[in-house]
Amino acid sequence: MRVLAAMSGGVDSAVAAARAVDAGHDVTGVHLALARNPQTYRSGARGCCTLEDARDARRAADVIGIPFYVWDMADRFHEDVVDDFVAEYAAGRTPNPCLRCNEKIKFAAVLDRAVALGFDAVVTGHHARLGGDGLLRRSVDLPKDQSYVLAVLRRDQLDRSLFPLGDSTKAQVRAEAAERGLAVADKPDSHDICFIADGDTRRFLAERLGESPGDIVDARTGAVLGAHSGAYAYTVGQRRGLALREPAPDGRPRYVLSITPVTNTVTVGSVDMLDVSEVAADRPVWTGGPAPDGPFECDVQLRAHGEVVPATVELAGGRMLASLRRPARGVAAGQALVAYRPDPAGDIVLGSATIGSRD
């Protein structure tokens, strides 16, 4: 096949491209320039899309022996990922920008352009597997598994995707990169949100949304316990940084339970009030075979690297509804509900949807 390898400048995408060559594919490397004002140097493991990353990707392509190009997708990334991120926080939700980037950029804009140019598929360094049945599965390296952020992909997008690293651990990938002479073998992984290089999400949002003072209120009594300068700075399950005026009667910590943009309030309460048993999610994407007609049993994951919870799930009225077998905590609107079917060959992604309400 003629495939396009998305090369970020990191070790995973470099080894994925090399493995695609070894598999006999006709491979072309492409680096996505996503930052409007790329910095010259990374700050440790923070940030991406720097000039250094582009150079690392080019050097890796040279070692592998494949053609290499840079595609400027900064405006599309800013509109579909960065602006969406800010708008979601302004609406009281907690988005996952990696989900949106995969959905809108890597497997929509890039894949569409690749197909238009005559490529058959896109290869990436994501840690996930596509079985012979075409179903998306977890990586063998569970701590590095990225199937959660790939669960937004449609069936037609998965059919044109290759994930060569799903059967390897991260340690194996780094060792292979060193054996191949790739300089990125020891390059640190990028952490946090790629377009917030210093990791200060609150500052980033404040610069774009401005200060908007409001109250922090007690869920049980409605009493005002403190003030905030912007509800966007909080997320469900947060405990630190609340600066409340008075402690709880039992002396235990309080946690953020909800954010209400209409009244500009942040509601807090005890840890047990975070328990959620019912989750409703919108815009479902189903890739795990024919969609079931009624309720079915599966496991659900409600945030990246979060715990897996057994549940009864149903697709109804354009939504995915999950009744959890045991309560989950820290469930935030804007995150994804991903349904998995346990399988001896690796848990299979059935589908996903964006979390709206939870009770």
Rank of each mutant, 00 (worst) to 15 (best):
A316E: 07
V309C: 09
C298Y: 06
R2Q: 14
D347S: 15
R137L: 01
L182M: 04
S168I: 12
E176N: 06
A114W: 01
L302S: 07
L135S: 02
P344M: 07
L34C: 07
V86A: 00
R154V: 04
P295I: 01
Q157D: 08
N264A: 11
R245Q: 09
P261N: 07
R42E: 13
V3E: 11
H191G: 10
A336E: 13
A233N: 13
I348Q: 15
Y232M: 03
P292M: 03
G131D: 14
S13E: 11
P188M: 01
S8N: 00
Y41M: 13
G289E: 09
L135P: 03
R202H: 07
S43E: 15
K104F: 04
G125H: 03
T221F: 10
V236D: 08
G251K: 05
G44F: 03
V276R: 12
L153R: 02
H25D: 14
R2P: 08
S258F: 10
E314T: 14
G317I: 10
T263S: 12
S270K: 08
E179K: 12
A23D: 12
D120R: 09
P67G: 03
L99W: 12
N37M: 04
D272K: 08
A291L: 13
A151R: 11
D192C: 02
V21E: 07
I348Y: 01
L162D: 07
P342V: 07
G294W: 11
Q238T: 05
A333S: 15
L350H: 05
S190Q: 04
P247G: 10
D299W: 11
K144A: 14
V140S: 11
V266A: 01
